[in-house]
Amino acid sequence: MEHLSKVTSALKNLRETRLSHLRPASEFFNHHQLSRPTDLNQATSRISYNTRYFAGNYSILIAILSIYALLTNLWLLLAIAFLFGGFTAINRFAPEPTQVGNYLVTQKGLYTGLFVIGIPLLWFAAPMSTLFWIVGASAFCILFHACLLDPGVESEYSTVQDPV
């Protein structure tokens, strides 16, 4: 029950910090504001503004690409499930040493067996290529969207500070 409250508070914290800055889909996918930047300075300006303005939407995009990458790399999904499931099972069902025949099976021995099988399985699944794919695909999508989406009129006033 304690774990459920931790997860609930973590999700609430995520919603309050990152997801509170979500912009509506109609604004994020507004094709009327798409235009090619005239020069590198304008492209840099658009990227700078749009990455801050749509930060919540871009976080959702990265999460979706990550889930897609995991679902398309079944070996990696299997390796992660095996390692986390094994770790959880050892902690839950084998906290104390157990006698099996003439052998004494300890938690340390079980962890060693888990990692002797799990690490080569993880290595075979190529997690680094998946990570680099996520980084590359996210960077491409975010920079492409941020560069082509012309900021609205409110962007002109984003640097103006209120007089005190």
Rank of each mutant, 00 (worst) to 15 (best):
M1W: 01
H3G: 09
K6M: 07
K6D: 13
A10L: 08
L11Y: 08
K12E: 02
E16F: 11
E16T: 08
T17A: 08
L19M: 03
H21V: 11
L22K: 08
F28Q: 09
F29G: 05
H32G: 08
Q33I: 02
R36Y: 13
R36H: 15
R36K: 10
P37I: 02
T38E: 15
L40F: 07
N41K: 15
Q42N: 14
A43G: 09
R46C: 03
R46L: 01
R46G: 01
S48T: 14
T51P: 07
T51E: 09
F54R: 06
A55Y: 14
S59W: 11
I60G: 05
L61E: 00
I62T: 11
I64L: 11
I64P: 10
I64S: 03
I64Y: 05
L65P: 01
L65H: 04
L65W: 00
I67E: 10
Y68G: 06
Y68Q: 06
A69D: 00
L70N: 14
T72A: 03
L76Y: 00
L77S: 12
A81F: 03
L83N: 12
G86Y: 02
N91M: 07
A94T: 10
P95N: 01
T98L: 13
Q99V: 07
Q99D: 06
V100Q: 10
G101N: 11
V105D: 03
V105S: 02
Q107K: 13
Y111D: 02
T112G: 09
G113P: 03
V116Y: 10
V116K: 10
I117L: 15
I117Y: 05
I117W: 04
G118A: 06
P120D: 04
L121C: 12
W123Q: 15
A125C: 10
A126R: 15
T130I: 07
W133S: 07
V135I: 09
S138H: 00
C141G: 07
F144V: 06
F144K: 06
L148R: 04
P151K: 03
G152N: 06
G152M: 05
V153F: 10
V153Y: 08
E154G: 07
E154K: 13
E156K: 07
Y157T: 14
S158Q: 10
D162C: 15
V164I: 14
